[in-house]
Design a protein around this nucleic acid. Structure first.
Lengths: 231, 231
DNA sequence: TTTTTTACTTACCGGTGGGTAAGATAACAG
DNA sequence: CTGTTATCTTACCCACCGGTAAGTAAAAAA
């Protein structure tokens, strides 16, 4: 429909705005795109400055609009936050389903989990899930988010248990093992920076290795000999 | 007032108040004890509700005093926060020094690190260091705290490197291995609860095992002797 | 006792931030 | 062109919070 001239920036993709900054350039575009632009900028700001220190004015300013305009797309500030959580949890759940389908033994599933999850932790909405403070949510919303997180934890534990059962993982306390792995992965969202030295894929691969193999030398691949001390 | 005998609660220890709540019962006690009481309650509240959602009134209320009284012991809110960080960092540094002194190979040092650090993460001031948001500090204070944290990271990496050099740890990217271990440990302060099912010592021991041994089955578990090939 | 000092209270200020009321302007339908 | 609707703005309200001023009362000193 009559691209006019200046408007020819053109969406490469209907659902992902090229730059959230420009989504509000035209007065009448589709509301879905604008809503998404709000969400993306908000998520970005929440990660930069935390939810509490990000004012609605901050979000509006970065979008070149004024605060009340935001209330056309979201009921209130918490609504934006909750949506960030939901999107992030959706990303995680996707990967979980893929892994459960991906046949393989328990250890392989855990490895796949670590790899995928680490990758999600380098994506803004994914980072929001673990980095933002649940305490900023009202109790209803918090309960919802908690249930998502519990689900993730249960899945990871079941992968580990599967590995113990099929012999690919050495017996251990699954609860603590899961806490340990999930902790290492969750913490990624605290130090990762998009323009940093480490690429998401590097992180994911190295984490998968470190967490499954441990540090201890003495596996076949290493140049050491192991002498069992106590038959 | 002037309860006379009620004062016989008596400090079992000069430096640790029995209950922060009662530190302000008498009008004239030593200011050091009261200052400490403020600090403890503040730390507790910061962990319960976050720094941002904890008002000076909240702190005062829990101590049965009024807000302005707090300003006799601290210049401002951030001053309290910074002191929490400093105390926590002090705890961590202590353990680091003990470990460096404690002779042993690299792997043993890393194991000791994991054990001690996990324990610190179950102590309020220790938890503050990693759980509270640096963004709440002014840039000067933030720089100070960051330098403490960098130091911790450097020490851990040096332990790992030492292990690689002496053959007790299989070669790996020390930076990512350190991130992985530190992440798992730091995350403890996000889920640990004092009255929970897991005791600090259980956590510490299990983490030391999981992180050093990994999940992979096939090595003899703990009772093995490693013979370094080099030298 | 009287005086001085320390510890604390009541009352208040200024700034900030979430959210709203009501009006303006552009897009669209007819 | 006209009326209607969606979109966005200016102006404002109110609650809360960090911090302070100024006064009160208890403890310690004299």
């Amino acid at each position: 429909m009559s691209i006019g001239n200046a408007r020819s920036v053109m969406p490469r993709d209907a659902t992902s705005s090229p730059s959230p900054r420009k989504a509000f350039a035209d007065r009448r575009r589709d509301p879905a795109t604008k809503r998404e632009a709000v969400l993306k900028t908000a998520a970005q700001l929440f990660l930069e400055k935390s939810y509490g220190r990000t004012s609605m004015n901050d979000v509006a300013e970065r979008l070149n609009i004024t605060k009340p305009a935001l209330y056309h797309y979201f009921d209130n500030k918490e609504d934006i936050l909750l949506e960030c959580y939901r999107l992030g949890c959706g990303l995680i759940e996707e990967t979980l389903n893929k892994i459960a389908a991906h046949c393989g033994n328990g250890l392989q599933k855990v490895e796949a989990f670590i790899h995928s999850y680490a990758t999600v932790m380098t994506v803004n909405f994914g980072r929001c899930v673990m980095r933002l403070d649940e305490g900023d949510l009202t109790s209803d919303a918090r309960a919802e988010v908690r249930s998502y997180k519990r689900k993730i934890d249960r899945r990871l534990r079941s992968f580990i248990q599967e590995g113990i059962d099929d012999g690919s993982i050495s017996p251990c306390d699954t609860k603590i093992a899961a806490f340990s792995i999930a902790g290492a992965l969750n913490w990624i969202c605290m130090w990762y920076e998009a323009d940093g030295a480490l690429s998401p894929d590097e992180i994911a691969s190295q984490f998968a290795r470190t967490l499954t193999q441990g540090l201890t030398a003495g596996k076949r691949s290493s140049k050491l000999r192991i002498v069992s001390k106590r038959s």
